[in-house]
Nucleic acid binder design. Structure first.
Lengths: 172, 172
DNA sequence: GGGTGGTAATCAGGCCCCTAATTAGCTGCA
DNA sequence: TGCAGCTAATTAGGGGCCTGATTACCACCC
């Protein structure tokens, strides 16, 4: 009746595993490590999001705040923030809206160019960061304390190879 | 005038880096590796999403299709799919809606329990996977070919430690 | 047999981030 | 001068995934 009632009639690939085993260039060990690695990354991502959410932050909001506190005068324009965060100006507009409502940043007109503006961390925002960052660092250090110094070096090297390999996903 | 005009008047923590260096438990090397690692993960995530998007898939849709093709009878109920994908039933409802519109899956009533249903991969869906998976595997292998067999083993081990460490982010 | 509690999927509404279109202002050149 | 083309930020609208409420149904137990 349906195709899979007669699997022997045609040499059809029936499952993911069959396709995998028949794919000539495939290294099962490499595929296994890929899956383990991606699962770990997903779990870490979720944990980071949940951790930041406890402080009322999304990752995007957190990143903007950190770039602002690092910046000269705790102040940047939206375009610069977008570049530093690797996101778009439109996204930054929304994130800054939220942070402004929370009182953590404020927008100031740029007298030299009326198209432009500066986003400045407020005192409230700075105090908030000073309060949340120790917990943040504490948790990061607890994650990283799984690794010996030698493993840290290895992790860094492998991360760089991974970033290089990501380019292979982006090609034609 | 504003607080930061008089940085010497109060021993205030002014920047992320200052907070970091003053934080007693902080290992700068570990923090550096954390940042390198997270950037690599972000880049990989974006690359995977872009690669799947070229096939018209989100990661969620891809995952549902893969679990279906692996399943007995290419068929699962939404609750099982949600468990396998690590997402909620409500999310699966939406993903299955999209896949159904594309003709890749169909819903069938479960005669034994009228609350329940089966989501089945259609022939169209299976053919689609058979066509896209070789490209998918090809790209994954290109990513993983950055690593020697020994490095793969190390990567697996470090990934597992990372997943274990993620728990440290989740605690009180 | 009829209510009570549990479970299946779905709906309603929200958050985050994206792209494309829009508005406003700058700049350089005929 | 005035206009063409660029650039800044925003708005409009959409996609993906979430939580919490809702609807329909099963199953147990009195």
């Amino acid at each position: 009746m349906t195709e899979h009632d007669a699997p022997h009639a045609t040499p059809r690939l029936e499952t993911f595993e069959e396709i995998a085993t028949r794919y000539p260039g495939l290294d099962p060990e490499a595929l296994h490590v890929w899956v383990v690695m991606r699962k770990a990354q997903t779990r870490l991502d979720l944990a980071v999001d949940a951790h930041l959410a406890r402080h009322g932050l999304s990752f995007g909001r957190y990143l903007v705040l950190v770039h602002l506190i690092r910046a000269e005068g705790h102040s940047l324009n939206p375009a610069a923030i977008a570049d530093l965060c690797g996101s778009t100006r439109a996204t930054i507009t929304g994130v800054v809206d939220t942070l402004e409502k929370a009182g953590f940043v404020e927008r100031e007109e740029d007298p030299a160019d009326r198209r432009s503006l500066q986003v400045r961390l407020t005192l409230t925002g700075r105090r908030f960061l000073e309060k949340m960052l120790p917990d943040h660092f504490d948790r990061l250090m607890k994650v990283m304390s799984e690794f010996t110094p030698a493993e840290l070096k290895t992790l860094e090297k492998l991360s760089q190879k991974l970033a290089a390999g990501a380019a292979a996903l982006e090609r034609p």
